[in-house]
Computed example of a mutant assay.
Amino acid sequence: MVVLLRMALIALAISWTPADRAFAEPASFPDLADSVAGRKDVTFADLIRLVAPRIAANGEASSGDGAIDVRHIGGEAWSSPAPEAMKLLKLAALPARSGGLDRMVLLLDFGQARDSASGFAVLALFDVTGEPRLLDATDVAFDRWTSFAEPGRLAIGEGDDLLVTRSTHSNSSQGYATTALVLLREDRFELVDRISTLDDRACAFERTQRLDIRQGTGAPFADIEATVTERTAGSGEQCGDATAPEPGTRTIAVTYRWDAAGQRYIADSDAFAALARENEERF
């Protein structure tokens, strides 16, 4: 029995290739001098210089003075120029797939955009199978701080992935988040939707909104199932004449389905747009 179990484990190890393991991993946070997986001759600094050519590989305080022009994933209305003095504040890496091919995605946080309160965060796509090539790059900052969400990647297509980023900022009583659903298709980033959520609290209550993203069924691209769960709890404090919302839980759900004719995802309702308008009234 032990021999049979050992043989089964060996067979599983053989069938589970290193590439499969890499694409099951969450986002990592490498140093610039680290080698890209499978490429001892290519570092993350080499990839970043394809976005910001003069970035310096000097540890956490990496700095430079310029980046290539990138579009904003949300369109021209969201576009902000890159900071005058480029400084890489955070680097996150995530293996991904496009058209069935292995790719590397980096999320580069360069801090605050020029003449804007929003950040400047570049989502960059690379082919690292040969001489490293930058395939696409887009600004995904919808707020001050941007990172990969959890999950940061869903394998929703036949060899194509969905990437999920989240932009946030907060003050003493409110926390703001914008989650971007980004389809990686034909080596290009395409925005599926952006979903805004708000946490707020006052003397008499605390309210949270949590977003969950799941992969559904369907082909050639699976449904994307998004659910916001809002929970409101009373504090039990005496707050004068302040009126607190009723405690309880509600869910707001939207499913995005692939439209073959339009070659894009379409939401089955405008529930998230209505939630965004409702939250704006609480700002």
Results as ranks from 00 to 15, higher is better:
227 T>D: 00
210 R>I: 14
42 V>P: 07
2 V>E: 13
245 P>S: 12
166 R>S: 13
168 T>V: 04
153 R>K: 13
21 R>E: 03
252 I>W: 12
68 I>Y: 13
6 R>F: 01
267 A>P: 08
58 N>P: 07
82 A>G: 09
160 D>K: 04
228 V>I: 15
158 E>A: 07
152 G>I: 06
107 L>N: 12
277 R>Y: 06
218 G>R: 01
170 S>G: 09
56 A>P: 03
16 W>G: 01
94 L>P: 02
18 P>S: 08
27 A>K: 11
58 N>C: 08
159 G>Q: 01
87 K>G: 13
53 P>S: 03
247 P>K: 06
77 A>V: 11
100 G>D: 10
4 L>T: 07
282 R>I: 08
133 R>K: 10
154 L>W: 14
200 D>M: 11
13 A>K: 14
162 L>H: 10
195 I>V: 14
143 D>Y: 13
268 D>R: 10
270 D>A: 09
275 L>Y: 13
177 A>C: 02
264 R>Y: 10
194 R>S: 15
41 D>K: 06
269 S>W: 05
152 G>T: 02
147 S>D: 08
20 D>E: 10
208 T>P: 09
206 E>G: 11
11 A>D: 01
253 A>H: 06
24 A>N: 07
219 A>R: 04
94 L>K: 03
99 G>W: 15
39 R>W: 04
122 V>Y: 01
129 T>S: 11
118 S>Q: 14
240 G>W: 00
139 D>P: 14
192 V>F: 06
172 S>A: 02
216 G>V: 10
41 D>L: 05
176 Y>S: 04
211 L>M: 09
222 A>C: 04
163 L>H: 03
282 R>H: 07
208 T>V: 14
199 D>M: 06
